[in-house]
Design a protein around this nucleic acid. Structure first.
Lengths: 350, 350
DNA sequence: CCGTTTCATGACACCGGTGTCCAAATGGGC
DNA sequence: GCCCATTTGGACACCGGTGTCATGAAACGG
């Protein structure tokens, strides 16, 4: 009559009671050892720790979570087409979580659906997550932030601009980064510069567009509406958006695409038309994804510190739980750098 | 004297006791409603369900996990350079988990480290995971499988060949897929075909190499050692590995690279040398990652159903928990298809 | 040498669910 | 109308930890 717990002859899990019995102390004392309580005799501590090490005892996290009233799960909520970014972000968060008792639970959501809110709500309430990191564009949703506040769930938003209290936000300065990139084009002599913008409603798209316009304005260059094309941050949208730009006469001598995928689309379109890059057309992208070095010529782009930002976001979340008294001092604003590769050259002398 | 639970004025969490009191029944009855126990008066059930709906009560998963002796967390363990694959796999698993009470916890590990085993062990034991999905190349580690058995942790391994009991394995038939791809090259008239192999010790690398050799043998084509170069599944390794192949005289008229990243490297190397693709050199990759359509010409490659395999893996894991009596009948072996794009053409008549 | 403070430890309740078992209520057959 | 079988609901213990508070021993001062 095997007990249902050990149906497959697995080693029965040790409990705190087993350890207490073996050490000849109360379970509370074992609990104190586990939690590094300072008010404990060193001798007792050593004895219990030895037994824990020998037996390989691991406290049951569910019981711990129940008693503590909180668990050690961090959620990552995203709805984003950018695969590279998601994985880099995961990497950064996991780096911060490494060595702590926190684990990362991931949850992609469907922006299209009008159930997103309910979906996320059930995600955080059902698992009673310690906190969540929200990736753009979901992170720009203020209603979501309010809901999380109501639910008492900590959160950190990732974004392209500081939207609220820095305590809840980690952002890159996309506007300035793009302005720098466009200044680079202008310094090379470009005057007719096209923009492939990101999707409407995306904060990052807006910031990058503003950076683009900022650099042109500074240089006293006017920007006809025809030099702006709308994209969706996808390769295909970049490809088709660049058509209208490349049809222009005179043609722009340079194009800034609001992300690398679209920049790759521009490059592809140029090749289809036999336009030489960078001789006849300079291209700059944004994100510094691997594709920029796979294509020919390799794309000049803007690199933002995704991994570092992920790490910062996670530290902000768990910092309050770990740091004893010390204020969490992770930066909230990160800056990006222009990576010069082979897709920019001075314009052909016309 | 605010209770520490509601330090920020958050709505205090409802418990099963609150619901029971409101419904005028015992907590056990509420528990029966939640767990769809059949022995319950319909009237009572409706009454309780109404209250649950009104109040938005959600059972505490930690308490549930503690009482049940198992939780609802699936782990994903990976150590893989292939970003696309990881995310597609996550996608497949999450699709299968959607609508269930399971959540996905991810855990990248460092193959290089000799602490991998301990790392994974602490991962599954500390969180008492319901089960884990293991991605290659970790999935090929039999010691890991044994350890998981000992720990009583369910697992499913992903791979390129069925290694053990299909119950614990979901695999693609890489060998046959590669053989097909190479047969395609042979059918086009190629006879001098180079191989860029994957890293030693990777099962997928071995399977793909065997498929390559199989197709050549079938066609009665001999394979000099010089036509095989070693790669590491990375773009850079593909680039440098192809150097030795392209230095050969006569040069191979086609190259099969064991994954797309390396195929992109071959394409890049060809461009650096001014070798026209596909006119002077045909290239086939493996994986069908997005990069294949970003480069010029778009790469012919082998597509394997990663998302479907992820879904199958997850269903195998949780099937035993959900399916009542019905055997889980997810397929264990998946086949791949050749995607013909622009990087293959008949060899130039020499 | 005794009273008081300090410190280490243990007894016990509790977190929020679930399983077991029994009592009460219901219903049916005779 | 009675008895037994069956359904329905509740009391209680338990899962494996943690918090509170009491207790006993040691250390200290006078």
């Amino acid at each position: 009559m095997a007990k249902q717990k050990q149906d497959e002859g697995q080693a029965p899990k040790l409990t705190i009671n087993d350890i207490a019995r073996m050490a000849g102390v109360s379970k509370k004392t074992v609990s104190r050892v586990i939690n590094r309580s300072p008010l404990l005799n060193q001798e007792t501590r050593d004895k219990v720790e030895a037994i824990i090490r020998e037996t390989g005892y691991v406290p049951n996290p569910q019981a711990r979570a129940l008693a503590l009233g909180r668990n050690f799960l961090i959620g990552l909520v995203y709805d984003n087409p950018n695969v590279q970014m998601i994985l880099s972000m995961q990497k950064g968060i996991l780096e911060a979580l490494h060595g702590t008792e926190f684990e990362l639970v991931i949850r992609p959501v469907d922006r299209g659906s009008n159930l997103v809110m309910d979906d996320i709500k059930s995600f955080v309430t059902r698992q009673r997550l310690f906190g969540v990191v929200i990736l753009p564009p979901m992170s720009e949703n203020d209603a979501l932030a309010r809901m999380l506040d109501e639910e008492g769930c900590r959160y950190v938003r990732m974004g392209s601009a500081v939207l609220d209290d820095p305590e809840h936000m980690v952002a890159s300065n996309d506007r300035e980064a793009v302005a720098d990139a466009v200044r680079h084009l202008i310094a090379q002599g470009h005057r007719r510069i096209g923009l492939i913008a990101g999707p409407h409603g995306f904060r990052s798209a807006q910031e990058r567009r503003e950076g683009f316009e900022l650099a042109l304005t500074e240089a006293g260059i006017s920007l006809p509406r025809s030099l702006i094309a709308d994209g969706q941050y996808t390769f295909e949208s970049g490809l088709s958006a660049s058509e209208s730009l490349l049809d222009l006469s005179p043609r722009p001598t340079a194009i800034f695409a609001s992300n690398d995928e679209m920049a790759a689309g521009v490059l592809y379109a140029a090749r289809l038309r036999g336009i030489a890059v960078p001789e006849e057309l300079s291209i700059i992208g944004f994100d510094d994804t691997p594709v920029t070095t796979r294509v020919w010529p390799p794309l000049t782009t803007v690199r933002w510190p995704i991994v570092a930002m992920g790490r910062a976001a996670a530290l902000k979340l768990i910092g309050t739980a770990i740091g004893e008294g010390s204020e969490v001092n992770e930066p909230s604003m990160f800056s990006s750098t222009l990576i010069r590769r082979g897709s920019v050259a001075p314009p052909a002398t016309s």
